[in-house]
């Protein structure tokens, strides 16, 4: 864990961003957190284009946390674009959202989400959820080999 790669949080709600940051801090997750405010910005960051075109050597984030309801391109759209590109096809992407509608869960998994976590109202539970998420995806989970970037 020496390099501490970035986590990309795709979230348009400022409160939720602040709360997620707080939850990360309280869970002692030290990875830098990059926030994208909508789906297009998220893809721009991942593929180093648009506003993020100048990003040095474009290291991919180690984990993407996606909200579903987003301005412009929504979370499922982002997921589809990520899975369609060989560079990001295997990148861990977790859906963290308010909705627990069955259709969202099903289409999330169908499009290749690695986890689906619902944001609880109770912040104590929320911190717990983020903590488990961080421990699982950043410490325990064995990531797939990174494809050689050309």
């Amino acid at each position: 864990m020496s390099e501490q790669k970035a986590i990309l949080l795709v979230e348009d709600n400022d409160d939720d961003v602040a709360l997620t940051l707080r939850a990360f801090k309280r869970s002692h997750l030290m990875n830098p957190l990059v926030v994208a405010r909508d789906g297009v910005e998220a893809l721009d960051f991942v593929f180093a284009r648009g506003a993020h075109a100048g990003r040095a050597e474009a290291p991919l984030p180690t984990l993407i946390i996606l909200d579903l309801k987003l301005p412009r391109l929504d979370g499922l759209g982002v997921l589809k674009a990520l899975r369609a590109d060989p560079r990001t096809a295997l990148l861990p992407a977790v859906i963290l959202t308010s909705s627990k509608e069955e259709q969202d869960i099903v289409s999330g998994y169908k499009l290749g989400a690695n986890s689906y976590v619902r944001k609880p109202v109770d912040f104590t539970e929320f911190v717990e959820a983020v903590k488990v998420l961080g421990i699982y995806w950043l410490a325990l989970n064995q990531l797939p080999p990174r494809p050689a970037s050309s």
Binding site: N13, D15, D16, S98, K119, P120, V121, F123, F126
Partner: peptide
């Protein structure tokens, strides 16, 4: 649910 989360979280 989002505003409720904020109310609870910031409280």
């Amino acid at each position: 649910r989002a505003p409720l989360r904020s109310m609870d979280g910031f409280s």
